[in-house]
Design a protein around this nucleic acid. Structure first.
Length: 289
DNA sequence: CCCGGAACCTGAAGGC
DNA sequence: TGCCTTCAGGTTCCGG
């Protein structure tokens, strides 16, 4: 699923190929990918525009146009942006093709039709609905503590709230909590200062590592060139049920449901009750793999 | 405001 | 082999 590391990988890998290119035409294979009732206006504002750069905010990708507009794209769960030649026929599940000059095109592939794109005068609208960027300097342990203060919802659910922190999805929420040794059902406000600090460091570490590995191809995520990411091979708990044991303590990974999301964790490394000494130290000292 | 659950969508996987 | 049900999850909406 495209979360922050996947969208960032797409941004980085598309940028050198499409910056400076102009949009020559648009093929809409499934109209639901753009907002209803606006196809003509959408085309008029899009076609002929030069791409001036790419920007990411949370899981949203913005293709900036010379007019000042931004084409905002959200890949939701199964979307990919594939870089193709101009003449390449759209394969199965491609919902839209953005044709560019110099014989290239972007194929928006999305088996489950959750992905969307729309035009916006600026990217400020994203700031209104999104919280802090977890990899920016403004995301501090103190800020995280203030976001969690007095919250009774499970910490896992809070990590998924884009209004608090932008870009964390199901996979990286589970991985961050495992890395920090925190049980996913702990109420957000119950975390000690020490635990918040660990979680803050873990989030940044996990996201940075995943970007270095070009994202995780657990489902239908592909990089623009069609390659897969390799971050999934470093996962310790996410999508690890099926009889897998914890790589640290070798007991079975467990699964619970939080806000209708499958949530994986190690019951020993992530104790349900706050313990100042036990879980974290042991967990920290074991070397990865 | 806070919290949890349903809906959207469709391919894959599992049950019988 | 085949039909049917369930599961997957980012975001938004709705009810308590």
């Amino acid at each position: 699923m495209p979360e922050l590391p996947e969208v960032e990988t797409i941004r980085r890998e598309l940028t050198p190929h499409i910056t400076g290119r102009s949009i020559t035409s648009l093929t809409l294979i499934w109209k639901g990918i753009i907002p209803a009732s606006s196809e003509e206006g959408f085309r008029a504002r899009l076609i002929g525009q030069e791409i001036t750069g790419l920007y990411r905010r949370g899981k949203y990708l913005a293709i900036r146009l010379a007019s000042g507009d931004s084409l905002i794209i959200h890949l939701r769960m199964t979307g990919s942006l594939l870089l193709k030649s101009g003449g390449d026929q759209p394969e199965r599940f491609v919902r839209a093709v953005i044709h560019l000059d110099r014989n290239i095109s972007i194929h928006f592939r999305d088996p489950r039709k959750f992905g969307l794109m729309w035009l916006c005068q600026d990217t400020d609208s994203l700031d209104k609905k999104l919280g802090v960027e977890p990899l920016e300097a403004s995301f501090t342990a103190d800020l995280l503590a203030s976001l969690l203060k007095n919250r009774k919802a499970p910490i896992k659910a809070l990590l998924l709230e884009q209004k608090l922190i932008a870009g964390i999805g199901n996979m990286y929420a589970d991985e961050s909590l495992f890395s920090a040794g925190i049980h996913p059902l702990r109420p957000g406000g119950s975390l000690s200062k020490k635990e918040v600090k660990r979680l803050h460091r873990s989030i940044r570490k996990i996201l940075r590592a995943a970007i270095e590995q070009k994202g995780a191809s657990v489902n239908t995520y592909y990089r623009p060139g069609g390659e897969e990411g390799i971050a999934q091979f470093s996962f310790r708990v996410a999508h690890r049920l099926g009889g897998n044991n914890c790589s640290v303590c070798d007991i079975p990974i467990e699964r619970v449901t939080v806000r209708n999301r499958g949530t994986y964790f190690c019951p020993a490394c992530q104790p349900e009750v706050k313990t100042e000494t036990s879980g974290d130290h042991r967990h920290k000292q074991k070397a990865p793999r």
